[in-house]
Design a protein around this nucleic acid. Structure first.
Length: 663
DNA sequence: GGGTTGGTTGTGCAC
DNA sequence: CGTGCACAACCAACC
């Protein structure tokens, strides 16, 4: 019997250690093994992917490719520039492959894609081998052992996981890899449509990755940022399995840290170094196996007997939460990511709710601007110019580094939704989706539902204060001083509420508290915005709105939510959009906004609105953005708070001019 | 079936 | 500066 000819399809499993799927491929004792990556246009054009995360992916791929080559100099990660649905059937034929092996994926797109690939492989008489490897337990098994219901509490995960059995010990990395077979093929590329390209705001030049199946040099190389036309990254964290394993070594070498870790006690204001492990981006791309972490931690905990921290706050607990969200997503499917049609999600009449495609019932990439005020709050939140230094520092750190502490995520999420702006959690989730290095659909959605009190968690009267909360771990405001450098010389007393500082203190600190974040330099002094609202007033309004919405008690799958007649159950006093008797009537004449069109140029609003000189055409703004970002590598430390700072700088001159004119 | 209890990670004040 | 407590508008799980 001839030996198997195996295509190993890498996706979000960019590692050699503890890969059950790769092990299964090797167990076939193949004659040849092609480690490939299909450069899928779905991710290039249709999913929000920030430039920092792209760079992190490329680093993971480069590292893996190098590791493969170390085991076999004839092999590498062969990156082929085409979507798997069209590419794989052609490859099966050209390479006469007998097997396709890959790690199981559980998110809705992954499942849909894989189901199609399985069908195509069957038609080509290629055997498909799939192993789970992304979570502690197989997500479908967790659901099954949870009575076929989504896992909505951590104890459900623990119980169901306990029934499945111990988390498997990690597998060692292979010591050798077979040669790839012939790399020749004579088929043509199926070029995808570039339109719409939701990532166009991330690019500074044309996206060229589909010019040639084998890449510009013809060697199946990992694409470059230049090939993708992407702007320069600003993140510090470097991707790759090699780096991840080094970090893990350092973490477990600190046995006290590892064994007594309690997430709620780690400081969200720590940034150099961070208080948490920073491993999540590596888990996202599969550069680090969660079971590797799990067992390395367990082996340390054993030495601590009863004194180690325990789930849910321990490191092990963090991994259990990850499994909970994965299994919930696997069970609920696409509607997990939205309120509409989701029976597990409470209905709250948020501002800026998603526009729903009437045919599919799924959220489009547009949202309804029911309130210009909420829209301006959303923009100011996204770009870190709310006037609340803690919120702004976190959002700028997110944009620059692609990473913020878990509790910082809580704080800004609470602020955007139930504890400040009363804006739909789906808006916030979209921003995190774009900017987080570790963005994991299941975890991101789950945590936004948690913080907005629409699922998993419901104690809406527990509200993060943008002033008191960071003070607990950073009295001096070092975190704010770093990421909001306008305020670096403010007295600690006013660092979280600079609007309270006397004028002479503001002058001494070299920064006026003035305007809405677009004023720039005024009378030779830097400015930082006034708070966009009074927090305690907004907190009260939001809590009343939440109480009302909880009393009404609708979930996303209720008919009244679907047909818009939920409005009849709310009065105008309730926070949120309540005008009209149904969505059709209420949304008449309401403008919509495409979320991914919200970019830097949108922060020009507020006090300057209506000033003809200040209104930029989109083209002009894009050009300005390019010139602002091109100097990214040379940017001084002062500007490390990211792209939005470029806007401050750009805006400064015109801002002061406009001020002068008004005078 | 109703009361109790616990829930990864709040705040503000007293001591 | 740390710990304890009242506050209190929640829901789910459990007895």
């Amino acid at each position: 019997m001839p030996k198997p000819r195996v295509i190993y399809w890498f996706r979000t499993d960019l590692r050699l250690h503890d890969s059950p799927a790769l092990q299964a491929a090797l167990d076939l004792e193949p004659e040849c093994l092609w480690p490939i990556w299909c450069w899928d246009p779905h991710y290039v054009y249709r999913v929000r992917n920030g430039h920092n995360r792209w760079k992190f992916l490329l680093e993971c791929q480069e590292d893996l490719s190098g590791s493969i080559s170390k085991l076999n100099k004839n092999s590498r990660l062969f990156v082929i520039r085409e979507g798997p649905q069209t590419l794989l059937p052609k490859l099966f034929k050209a390479w006469r492959s007998t097997h396709l092996v890959f790690e199981k994926d559980t998110d809705p797109y992954g499942r849909e894609r894989d189901a199609e690939i399985i069908k195509l492989a069957k038609e080509a008489k290629v055997e498909v081998v799939i192993k789970y490897g992304r979570t502690l337990w197989d997500s479908d098994e967790l659901v099954r052992f949870n009575g076929n219901k989504p896992t909505m509490t951590i104890s459900q995960v623990q119980t169901a996981g306990g029934k499945i059995g111990d988390v498997p010990r990690p597998l060692p990395a292979p010591k050798s890899l077979p040669d790839p077979g012939s790399l020749e093929f004579d088929f043509e590329i199926d070029r995808p449509s570039h339109d719409p390209d939701v990532n166009h705001t991330q690019r500074q030049s044309e996206e060229k990755s589909y010019a040639n199946l084998k890449g510009p040099k013809g060697g199946f190389e990992v694409p470059t940022m230049e090939e993708l036309g992407l702007i320069a990254p600003t993140k510090k964290l470097v991707g790759g399995e090699t780096e991840a394993l080094k970090m893990l070594d350092r973490i477990v070498a600190n046995e006290d840290y590892t064994a007594t870790f309690e997430k709620p006690k780690t400081a969200p204001t720590a940034f150099d170094p961070a208080a948490t492990t920073m491993l999540s981006p590596y888990h996202h791309f599969g550069a680090l196996s969660v079971r590797e972490l799990y067992w390395r931690v367990q082996d340390v905990i054993k030495k601590y007997k009863g004194t180690a921290s325990k789930p849910p706050v321990s490191l092990i607990g963090q991994l259990q939460f990850r499994d909970m969200y994965f299994a919930a997503h696997a069970s609920i499917g696409s509607v997990f990511g939205q309120t509409h049609g989701n029976s597990h999600c409470k209905f709250i009449p948020w501002h800026l709710r998603s526009k729903i495609d009437e045919k599919t019932g799924l959220a489009t990439k547009e949202y309804i601007v029911n309130s210009e005020e909420a829209e301006s709050w959303f923009k100011r939140w996204k770009f870190g110019i709310t006037g609340f230094p803690w919120i702004d520092a976190v959002m700028r750190q997110l944009r620059t580094e692609g990473f913020i502490h878990h509790l910082a995520r809580h704080s800004v999420a609470c602020f955007l939704t139930r504890g400040g702006c009363y804006i739909d959690w789906e808006r916030g989730a979209e921003v995190f989706e774009e900017w987080l290095l570790d963005h994991e659909p299941a975890c991101n959605i789950g945590n936004w539902q948690w913080l907005s009190c629409t699922a998993f968690f419901s104690q809406f009267y527990r509200c993060y204060s943008p002033i008191a909360f960071p003070q607990k771990t950073d009295k001096n405001g070092d975190f704010v001083r770093h990421y909001v450098p306008e305020l670096k010389d403010f007295p600690a007393k006013y660092i979280y509420e600079p609007w309270k500082a006397p004028i002479q203190d503001q002058r001494k600190a070299g920064c006026w508290i003035k305007g809405d974040g677009t004023a720039g330099v005024v009378d030779g002094l830097q400015t930082y915005p006034k708070p966009m609202f009074d927090f305690s007033t907004r907190r009260e309004i939001c809590i009343q709105g939440m109480k009302k919405a909880y009393d009404v008690g609708l979930n996303g799958a209720d008919e009244k939510v679907k047909d818009g007649t939920w409005r009849e159950l709310f009065d105008d006093a309730a926070e949120g959009p309540t005008k009209g008797s149904n969505d059709k009537e209420a949304n008449k004449g309401m403008r919509t906004h495409v979320e991914w069109e919200l970019n830097d140029s949108d922060i020009h609003f507020g006090e300057d609105r209506g000033d003809a000189e200040e209104v930029k055409s989109p083209k002009k703004a894009a050009a300005q953005k390019e010139s602002g970002s091109s100097g990214g590598g040379k940017r001084k430390r002062q500007d490390s708070s990211g792209g939005s700072m470029d806007k401050f700088v750009t805006k400064s001159a015109s801002g002061s001019k406009s001020k002068a004119k008004k005078k």
